[in-house]
Simulated assay, not measured.
Amino acid sequence: MSHALPRRAFAGLALLPLFGCAAPPAQAQRGALLALPDFADLAERVLPAVVSISVTSEAREIPPELRGTPFERYFRDRQRGRGPQVMGAGSGFVIDPSGLLVTNNHVIGNASRVQVTFQNGQEYPARLVGMDELTDLALLRIEAQGALPALSWGSSAALRVGNWVLAAGNPFGLGGSITSGIVSARGREIGAGPFDDFIQTDAPINPGNSGGPLFNMAGEVIGINTAIYSPSGASAGIGFAVPSDLARGVIDQLRGTGRVERGWLGVSVQDAEAEPGALRRGAAPAGGVLVAGVVRGSPASRAGLRQGDQVVAINGDAVDTSRALVRGIAAVPPGQTVRLSILRNGRPMELPVQVGRRPVEPQG
């Protein structure tokens, strides 16, 4: 099911007439007919590779008095296989004719059984290859006789606000559906995690669309539909998709090793502002990122990074926000050395740091 962001009630909205900017009715109608594309050929081409996913999980309610105690694990072990079955539904798409499929991590969850259904009615059991909670992505494999229809990745970086996009999936469990809209915004942060970089679209996305593809007009996957913002639980014209440029690297790692490894410094950081007069002293004009704390024994600690240092670049590439620093280091393979450009007490320095492996629950 799609994750919905916290619901908000909106009041006081009214439809107001616009004066002085409307074209004559006949001219407006002709313009609309010319402007709206026909999506039929595109839908026919991409839908065979879009699947509906049904999952079965066991619901095991932990008594409140046992949560957080040593008896919780014992209770879970005793109840495994005895709980009631809970059904869920989502969407996915084939990225390799051999049977590899992409969906959302939250669609799969702790499912004990995953079933994939194609547009032509063919059904296959699926097994999990790997999942990544931080980007909410998962990779599945099915065993099919013969090559499957597959989709290709497109570049989300090439998207512009206002571009047409199509969303495909399994809304409300109805099966293969396709909706159209535009890119409403890029780089959205919605509080889902440290790697938020969502594409916002007004193409209708509803519960069950999670894990389905967002297409450009070339039929390339430029996003994975993941979340909605809705006062009612249904589409309100504000949906979010993981951009393909982020998803592709994650899926490649899951395909190769079944897990995702990210670089880690071991620091807590916050955005910094440029000091008054920094330009006159020859310091970097960007505010950079302020090191608020360093984890003992971490890569940053071993390299000599200190609390109060101001990181302004990674390997010469400027970093202006703490989020950019976290993403930049996360993209570096563990074990590789990067060059941090820092300001220490206003003086520029270069600091080599051998990047570590990001823990499951990093301390900083």
Rank of each mutant, 00 (worst) to 15 (best):
F198W: 11
E189A: 14
D132C: 02
A318W: 11
R160Y: 10
G277W: 07
G266E: 06
A43H: 13
L159Y: 02
V250K: 07
Q145G: 14
L351F: 05
R45M: 09
E273S: 15
V86E: 12
G233N: 11
A147G: 07
G356A: 05
R306N: 09
L42K: 06
P194S: 09
V221P: 00
L140Q: 06
G130N: 06
S341P: 12
A9T: 13
A185Q: 02
A300M: 01
G173N: 03
I228W: 10
S230A: 03
G263K: 00
Y229F: 12
F75C: 03
P37V: 02
P25D: 12
T135E: 01
V291W: 04
A11S: 14
P285W: 05
L290K: 10
R73K: 12
A203W: 02
Q307H: 11
E143D: 13
P348Y: 04
Y74P: 11
W153C: 03
R30F: 09
L140D: 10
V250W: 10
G90V: 01
A40C: 14
L16Q: 12
C21Y: 12
C21D: 15
A241T: 07
W164D: 09
L340C: 04
N216R: 02
V355F: 11
A32N: 12
I224E: 00
S230G: 06
R76A: 15
V86G: 06
R248E: 14
G364R: 05
A274M: 09
L134E: 14
A23Q: 08
G109R: 08
H106K: 10
E350K: 05
F71V: 06
A40W: 14
A157Y: 12
